[in-house]
Computed example of a mutant assay.
Amino acid sequence: MYKVIGLTGGIASGKSTASDYIRSLGFEVLDADVYARKVTERDSAGYHKIIEAFGTDILDGNKEIDRRKLGEIIFNDPEERKKLNSISHPEIRRMMNADQDEFVKQNHVFLDIPLLFENGLDKKCDITITVYVTKENQLERLMVRNELSEKDAVSRVNSQMSLDEKKNLSDYVFDNNNDQKELYEQIDKFVEMLKNHQL
């Protein structure tokens, strides 16, 4: 019986690095962000609903949704964030569930979901994992990666459930405070246990 494994983290915690590595080991990793982009693709049902809710100011010159403009609105306003989530989440879930049901017939499936616990999706997983870094490291990495001021970085990090909270809710934690090699070693160990039915 194959397992559904929820993988989460926070902005700049290294979740994508972990996902990419897990994928390279031959597992399907269904990435909620990829589905979220599909929801905002031009002329999709989600696209029209989002424009209806947020207006045409969020479009770029090609009439595509400018994710940066939309991000600026939702990161600073919990109500606006709620509004976007109520449009996009049901659609993302529907697409992910369909793919998950297919892939889990052949192998363990990882779900890369930033809002795993916030949306109660951990209940649909057999195992949950958080990619963890301290808040100091998270802010530092985010400022460097996205060229953000400290104020903007803090606002983005604070718009999410804290990694300490996610860590406490998870079955497993991949600690990513050190180098990539150490992260990969933790993943290898987890995958070994998974293959040997020790989980």
Rank of each mutant, 00 (worst) to 15 (best):
Pro114Val: 04
Glu64Thr: 00
Asp43Glu: 10
Gln106Ala: 09
Phe117Thr: 15
Leu121Asn: 11
Asp57Gln: 14
Glu118His: 14
Glu41Ser: 15
Ile58Arg: 03
Gly71His: 12
Glu41His: 14
Asn62His: 07
Asp57Ile: 10
Phe75Lys: 13
Ile92Trp: 02
Pro114Thr: 04
Leu116Tyr: 09
Asn119Ala: 15
Asp99Val: 08
Lys105Val: 05
Arg67Met: 10
Phe103Tyr: 11
Leu115His: 08
Glu118Lys: 14
Ile74Gln: 12
Gln100Gly: 08
Lys69His: 05
Asp101Leu: 02
Ala45Trp: 10
Gly55Glu: 04
Asp60Trp: 01
Gly71Glu: 10
Ala98Asp: 14
Lys105Leu: 04
Glu102Trp: 00
Pro78Met: 13
Asp101Trp: 00
Gly61Asn: 13
Ala53Phe: 11
Glu80Ser: 12
Lys105Ser: 05
Ile50Glu: 02
Phe117His: 15
Arg93Ala: 02
Asn85Glu: 14
Asp112Leu: 11
Leu84Val: 08
Leu115Gln: 06
Leu116Asn: 13
Gly61Ala: 08
Pro90Cys: 08
Asp43Asn: 15
Glu72Lys: 13
Ile74Leu: 09
Ala53Gly: 06
Phe75Glu: 11
Phe103Asn: 11
Arg68Asn: 15
Asp43Phe: 08
Phe110Met: 04
Lys105Asn: 09
Lys63Cys: 01
Asn62Trp: 00
Asp57Ala: 13
Met96Pro: 01
Glu64Cys: 04
Arg68Cys: 10
Met95Ile: 02
Leu59Tyr: 05
Asn119Thr: 15
Arg81Gln: 08
Gly46Val: 01
Arg67Tyr: 11
Ile87Asn: 02
Ile58Val: 08
Leu121Trp: 10
Asn85Gln: 13
Ile74Phe: 11
His108Pro: 07
Leu59Thr: 02
Asp101Phe: 00
Asn119Cys: 14
Asn85Leu: 10
Glu72Val: 10
Asp43Arg: 11
Glu79Asn: 00
Ile87Asp: 00
Ser88Ile: 12
Tyr47Ile: 01
Asn85Cys: 08
Ala45Asp: 13
Glu72Arg: 13
Asp112Gly: 10
Ile87Ser: 02
Glu91Lys: 10
Gln100His: 09
Leu111Arg: 14
Asn62Ser: 05
Ile74Lys: 12
Glu118Asp: 14
Pro78Lys: 15
His48Cys: 01
Asp77Ile: 08
Lys83Glu: 09
Ile92Cys: 05
Gly61Ile: 02
Thr56Ile: 11
Leu70Pro: 07
Tyr47Gln: 00
Leu84Phe: 11
Ala98Trp: 06
His89Asn: 07
Asn107Thr: 06
Lys105Gln: 10
Ser86Ile: 00
Pro114Glu: 09
Asn119Trp: 14
Ser44Pro: 08
Asp101Ser: 07
Ile87Phe: 03
Asn62Val: 00
Asp77Arg: 09
Gly71Gln: 12
Gln100Tyr: 06
Thr56Met: 07
Gly71Trp: 13
Ile92Tyr: 04
Glu52Val: 04
Lys49Leu: 15
Glu52Met: 06
Met95Trp: 02
Lys49Trp: 11
Met95Cys: 03
Ile65Asp: 14
His108Lys: 05
Phe117Glu: 15
Pro114Trp: 06
Val109Thr: 09
Arg68Glu: 14
Lys82Cys: 05
Asp112Cys: 10
Pro78His: 14
Glu52Lys: 06
Arg81Ala: 04
Met95Arg: 05
Lys49Phe: 13
Arg68Leu: 13
Val104Thr: 15
His89Pro: 01
Arg93Tyr: 06
Asp101Ile: 03
Ile92Leu: 06
Val104Ala: 12
Met95Asp: 13
Glu102Asp: 07
Arg67His: 12
Val104Gly: 12
Asn97Asp: 03
